[in-house]
């Protein structure tokens, strides 16, 4: 059975993973995090990612009327890397979010997405 710390360890084992974090979408708190890169504060980063997700959900809610929006995962590619977020429903409110930043050169997004799916099902089963 996977605990939250093991979950983070497995996420960091994804090829090309630079840093990772688990966060609570409702409150914006960082649950566990690998070491953040220089100049990045983990707590702020968690709160900011929460806002990103909220904005995305708001935007999608407006663009697909007649549909309740539930995000499974979200991928953002920037100049320097890929940012992958996966949302999981839990017994507590959540959703619990796995965030991982991937190296643009070394990472395989499809593989990373697949691995995140696998990790999240094992975390909740």
């Amino acid at each position: 059975m996977l605990g939250l710390h093991d979950c983070l360890t497995e996420v960091m084992a994804i090829p090309g993973a630079l840093d990772a974090m688990l966060l609570d979408q409702t409150s914006g708190v960082a649950v566990v995090a690998s070491g953040a890169p220089d100049g990045v504060d983990t707590e702020r980063s968690a709160a900011a990612l929460t806002e990103t997700l909220r904005a995305t959900m708001d935007g999608l809610a407006r663009s697909c009327p007649g549909d309740t929006v539930r995000i499974d995962d979200m991928l953002v590619t920037t100049d320097h890397g890929h940012h992958l977020l996966r949302l999981m429903e839990t017994a507590f409110e959540g959703p619990l979010v796995i965030y991982v930043r991937l190296d643009r050169e070394r990472a395989n997004v499809a593989l990373a997405r697949f691995r995140l799916q696998d990790i999240s099902t094992r975390l909740l089963a």
Binding site: M1, L2, G3, L4, C7, D24, S27, V29, V31, T90, A91, F92, E93, G94, L96, L123, L124, A125
Partner: peptide, 21 residues
């Protein structure tokens, strides 16, 4: 509680974390 399986370890940890905060 974990052996009987209504919640997983990860969920219980997350639940405790949320409740305590």
């Amino acid at each position: 509680l974990l052996a009987e399986g209504p919640v997983t370890l990860g969920e219980l940890q997350f639940c405790v974390l949320g409740a305590v905060l």
